[in-house]
Every structure is written in C-alpha cells, then in structure tokens.
C-alpha cells in the first residue's frame, strides 16, 4: 500500500464532487488498484505521488481520468427491455412502411456510454433486416471522450457482456479478443460515435427517426431538461420516436411531446403543429 489517508480523503472528495458516488472508508485498496496503472504510466512510484502531483499542478484531464477510473458505469445491454421490444415490434415496422426503400433510417443513441445501447440496436436491426448495414445508420454520442473511444472500439470486458446480453447474441455477434469480446465488424460499421454535450447547442446531427435519450434528463434541472428536449425535437423527423428512461417523462417538462403507450412502456412523439 502506498496510499496515505490524506490522499484517500482527497480522492473520496473528488469522486463525490464529480459523480455523487461515495467511496466508503475501507475502499483504499480499490483506489490503489484502479489508480496505480495511471501513476505508473506517469513514472510515479505510487498513488499518493499521483495525488500529490495533481494537487500541486491541477489538470482537469487527469482529474477526469481519476474519476472515470473509479466510477465504472456498468451498463446493461437490454436495459429495461421494453424500449427494445417495442422498437422491433412497433417502431421499426411503422418506419419501414413510411419511408422509401432507399431512405436510410437514422437512430441516435444519446449518452451512449461505452456503446451497449447502440450495439444492442445494431444487433436487433441486423437480425430483423437483411440489408441493415445500408438501410440504417446509428449515431452514438457521449459527453466523455473516453466513452466515445470505447464505443468506437466496440470491445467489452467479460463483466460487461455478462450484463443482460443473451448468450445466443454474444456468440453470434462477438468474437474473443484477449479477455475481451469484440463486436462483429459489420455491426461496428453501422455505428458512428462522436462527442456531444447535450447541455449545450447541438452539433449538426440527424434528422433522426428514433432517439434513445435514457437516464440523462434525471441529472439536469428543469430549465436544462426543457432546453435539451427542445433541441432534440428540432433534429427529429415529425413522425419520429423518442425513448426516455423508465423514471423519466416529458409530462410537466415540455408540452410539445405526445406520450404513446407501447407494450409495458411508453415512447414520446413530437406533437403535431407544436
């Protein structure tokens, strides 16, 4: 152990401030294990030396990496299954009927994390459509550069593929790469990943037929929620579909959306004439 009590406290406060995650006392070994590689990369002998150097010369890039290393956000594949079941049963058939065969469907996975949602959609589409690669494109964006890079790589750890990915899909769409699993190249080509801050004016994107904006709004105040929903609506097709997280809604936030019950869940569509 090279981690001093002062360094541990500093890391705890940093992580709590940036992510609201509480590192309980006793997690010193976790901090040591996760941050030691970063310290060694910098030619420092231990984690306390890493903390000292950041305290002396603050560097937002390094503090962000420290927080990311300690806050593994494990995402499930078919997280809250409903938005995916209703995508294949209702949304996709309606869109295919409404669009010309040469019109490419555009789907946006906003706040894509390490790419599970985008690749879940790619797998479902490639199973449902023989020409999925040319008929659909998936845009995946995240605030974090690291997450965008991870999505582009399409590589997932053992623990990540264990999270709600059906075994039959794992063996059909992934190959082993060391102790990780790599998504099939054809599926990776369906996904384009880029950085995007939802709380700021959006870059040129879309127009989208389907938007997955799940478990993002919960982190923002009402005014920001309204701004985000407004910007999203502007880059959606008038007959497009928006999926929010199970605990999220546009009701009481932005009246320009119509809630549609789909299976056991719901989706939102831009209100006509809004």
């Amino acid at each position: 152990m090279t981690l001093t009590a002062t360094s541990f406290d500093w890391v705890r406060q940093l992580v709590h401030r940036e992510s609201a995650i509480v590192l309980q006392p006793g997690k010193e070994y976790l901090v040591e294990a996760r941050l030691l590689p970063m310290a060694q990369q910098r030619g420092l002998s231990g984690v306390s030396e890493l903390v000292e150097s950041v305290r002396k010369t603050p560097d937002p890039a390094v503090t962000r990496r420290i927080v990311e290393a300690l806050t593994t956000n494990e995402t499930s594949w078919f997280r809250d299954g409903d938005p995916f079941t209703s995508f294949t049963s209702t949304v996709l058939p309606q869109l295919l009927a409404a669009r010309r065969p040469d019109e490419r469907l555009q789907i946006w996975s906003a706040a894509c994390s390490s790419g599970q949602e985008a690749y879940t959609l790619a797998m479902l589409l490639s199973d449902a459509l023989p020409n999925a690669a040319t008929r659909v494109s998936i845009t995946a964006t995240d605030l974090s550069q690291k997450m965008v890079e991870r999505t582009r790589a399409g590589r997932f750890s053992q623990l990540e593929v264990n999270r709600g990915l059906p075994a039959s899909m794992l063996v059909r769409h992934f190959t082993r790469a060391g102790n990780e699993w790599e998504i099939a190249p054809a599926l990776r080509r369906m996904v384009t990943a880029s950085e995007c801050n939802l709380a700021a004016p959006l870059p040129r994107l879309g127009p989208f037929d389907v938007v997955y904006l799940r478990n993002v709004l919960i982190y923002f105040d009402l005014a920001t929620k309204q701004q985000i929903l407004g910007r999203v609506r502007q880059i959606m097709r008038p007959d497009g579909w928006l999926f929010l997280g199970a605990a999220e809604t546009t009701l009481g936030v932005d009246d320009n959306w119509e809630r549609v019950v789909l299976g056991r869940g719901s989706a939102y569509r831009p209100r006509k004439g809004a």
């Binding site: 070994y29 040591e32 996760r34 030691l36 102790n179």
Partner: peptide, 21 residues
C-alpha cells in the same frame, strides 16, 4: 491483472482488489 480485477470484487467481496505491488 484485468482478469484479477474482475474476480476479486465478484468472489472476494465488494471493493476488494488484488494489488500488483
């Protein structure tokens, strides 16, 4: 090490780690 990083929290306990020092 990455394999040990996955095994320790799962089997040994939450927050546990094999530290390569």
């Amino acid at each position: 090490q990455s394999i040990a990083d996955e095994v320790w929290p799962s089997l040994v306990g939450d927050g546990e780690a094999f530290v390569p020092l």
